[in-house]
């Protein structure tokens, strides 16, 4: 199963920091996200571009996780050489992560 099937996401940027909010469509899937979407997993997916730590914040009341990735935007939005200097496209890649099928 892909993460995309049970969650949606949005990327935000500030300076050289990128954050990706991952939100469960169904609140009851939150614990499953907490279990399978670790800082390490997200950090590994973006290891080519994220050069600082990845920190995860939990928002159980919204069924959401917020991943904050440091040194992630090529030195900062305003000076980055990247095509997508804001890193806005990253949330879509995160949603492609494989998750174990539930109940399987």
């Amino acid at each position: 199963m892909k993460l995309r099937e049970i969650a949606h996401a949005r990327t935000g940027d500030k300076g050289n920091i990128s954050n990706i909010a991952v939100i469960a469509y169904q609140p009851e899937d939150f614990d499953f996200l907490v279990q399978h979407l670790s800082e390490e997993r997200v950090g590994a997916l973006f290891s080519d571009i994220v050069h600082g730590p990845v920190k995860r914040y939990e928002l159980p009341k919204l069924g959401a996780l917020n991943f904050v990735m440091s040194q992630a935007l090529g030195g900062g939005v305003t000076r980055s050489l990247a095509l997508d200097a804001h890193g806005k496209s990253l949330s879509a890649y995160l949603l492609d992560l494989d998750l174990p099928d539930r109940g399987a």
Partner: peptide, 14 residues
């Protein structure tokens, strides 16, 4: 869903 996405937009420690 639209409100949750915007709530966390450009937020670090909520």
């Amino acid at each position: 869903a639209t409100c949750k996405e915007q709530l966390l937009y450009e937020i670090h420690d909520p």
